[in-house]
Design a protein around this nucleic acid. Structure first.
Lengths: 339, 339
DNA sequence: CTGAAAGCGCTAACAG
DNA sequence: CTGTTAGCGCTTTCAG
């Protein structure tokens, strides 16, 4: 059927080993033999068999993208991560399998120990993530999109929260806002803020507010449109002087704005609202369409893959941080009232 | 290092072949030998090597999910398909690789002919889809989520458009609506309606309108929030008597409602709007939150995988159609004005 | 610079 | 019911 490396070798008048050398560029060949091999391959329409290659080399050239199975923490940015990772994987001549796994690391361990994949890229990493420990215990190479609290060993790429928050501040401060509330995400009861992005965004927010001599005001909110609506009520009640709000979570933000409007507030007249880490499309779905700092999803997906593969090749991999992009919508504007 | 089938065989006092028979349940064994093998495997912590298995059996137990590379036709339901497919794949002891490929079939052909995967599941199938032909030419088994216009040979699963539209009609007719406009999607200039879901939804709409003795009213609209806003203007201008609209595309629908409200219409007082084939969360993002017939994404993803694997095993696979689920929101209500 | 040979770990006839 | 024997198609020492 399909031509094998032996067929090519025979046709080119060389040994299978030589063809392999050519294929992997693993030993120098004379131009002449290379020529003959190329020709033979072309004539026979040779395609190397990835499975045989994997068995012999003990490298499958397949990596896994593990992402949360549950819909609880639904993020529309997830799609971006997958796309970014998949593209980068293909570009580097690897394959990407997706593993929807629970947070506890059990499923992940079961899949990883099968040994099909060379390494695992973990999405949506928690501050204290059992999946990371599971992989470490198995000795399966990994890289993270996000990071654990105490991460030292595992390579990672993550959002540059400081810079992303700075983009939001620049925008709001430039419009004259001083009383800026952070509506942060809350992962679940008991695990409040254990999700890295929430933790680090709040850190950055507090630091930058302090730096400008402003008083921080933080409240928490779940991750659905409904939660966002509820939060809007608390926002008005608890922070009556606020002129701007930065809302984490791309689903909560539309809820906040919708509820504010329903309660007779005008945006951005009475209140400027920005969505932190949203996709442009989701931000555009609200009325007025939301100013947002985007999630650098495709970038992080791609960088995560690159980090993992570098790691697999034994290179040291320094962390990479990427900021989101400020996309100005109609939900933010100059301060109207002066407190 | 890791225990092989030979190690197990030795420890159990049987031949490697016997262990293989046990593993694959391919030949009957006495309880006693099965017992011994199990024990040996447990002691040695044996994990079968999927790559070796693939090479020997010529079945990698890996399937690919090909989905559009471009962001042009962005669908948030895509995530559901991937999740559904990934879960089903894992449950059936297969692996799923994702291939972001262009619509022209070239990239897909290149990937498919490598021979890593046993079959390909195609998402977002067009009525006349080069990717399908590419796979057929290569002889790579495939299954479709969606279908081509002239599909006969390739197994597929798809939305039950008739039934889904019927759900929408039941709802709207029950509320007293008779002048129901379909705001259908438009793929791109020149390829108007070539996208199956648009085509089949319009078909169903026209048939069911006729069946109730109602006059069909169809207009077309792009696939973004902005497009939806523009469509709202045309809706008011071209169909002044309409009391309800069914909007295809989960991004256009929020645009339509937002613009209607901005123009002083109240929903559902002046107009009922439903979103056809949206996720619940995206529908909830609008104000008022949209009544929708959901995309049965996870179901179709799972069913697609099952169809493909059945096909791989040589079984005939009849088409499967699944309807969406009606989720009633606040954007639809009883007719107010009587024409 | 090229080749011979020995596997990678498993499956699948074919015997017995 | 179990074992023997060839491979699957490629990589990779080790020689030359």
């Amino acid at each position: 059927m399909a031509a094998t490396i032996r067929d090519v070798a025979r046709a080119a008048g060389v040994s299978p080993a030589t063809v392999s050398y050519y294929l992997n560029d693993t030993k120098p060949l004379t131009a002449a033999t290379a020529q003959r091999i190329e020709q033979a391959m072309a004539e026979l329409k040779f395609r190397r068999n990835p499975v045989a290659r994997a068995l012999a080399s003990r490298r499958s050239r397949i990596i896994a993208l593990a992402y949360p199975f549950s819909d609880a923490h639904e993020s529309y940015s997830a799609r971006q991560f997958i796309i970014g990772a998949a593209r980068a994987t293909a570009a580097l001549d690897y394959n990407l399998v997706v593993w929807p796994v629970d947070d506890d690391g059990l499923e992940l361990a079961k899949l990883a120990e099968q040994g099909l994949v060379d390494g695992v890229l973990l999405m949506d990493v928690r501050n204290d993530d059992p999946r990371v420990y599971a992989l470490e215990k198995l000795g399966v190479p990994a890289a993270l999109i996000g990071r654990t609290g105490d991460n030292v060993t595992v390579p990672y790429v993550d959002i540059d929260f400081d810079e992303s928050v700075r983009l939001a501040f620049d925008h709001l401060l430039g419009l004259g806002h001083r009383r800026i509330v952070l509506v942060n995400g809350e992962l679940e009861r008991g695990k409040l803020l254990s999700f890295g992005p929430y933790l680090r965004t709040e850190d950055a927010y507090r630091r930058q507010m302090a730096q400008w001599g402003l008083e921080p005001a933080v409240m928490y909110c779940g991750q659905t449109v409904i939660d966002g609506r509820a939060a809007a009520g608390r926002l008005l009640a608890d922070f009556p002087g606020a002129t701007a709000a930065i809302v984490m979570n791309e689903l909560a933000a539309p809820g906040v704005t919708a509820e504010l409007i329903q309660r007779g507030r005008s945006l951005p007249g009475d209140m400027s609202v920005m969505s932190m880490f949203s996709t442009v499309n989701v931000a555009a779905m609200s009325t007025p369409n939301l100013t947002t700092v985007t999630t650098p999803g495709t970038e992080l997906g791609a960088l995560g893959v690159e980090a993992l593969l570098k790691h697999l090749d034994g290179f040291p991999v320094p962390p990479v941080l990427v900021a989101g992009r400020l996309v100005v919508g109609a939900s933010t504007g100059p301060v109207q009232r002066t407190t």
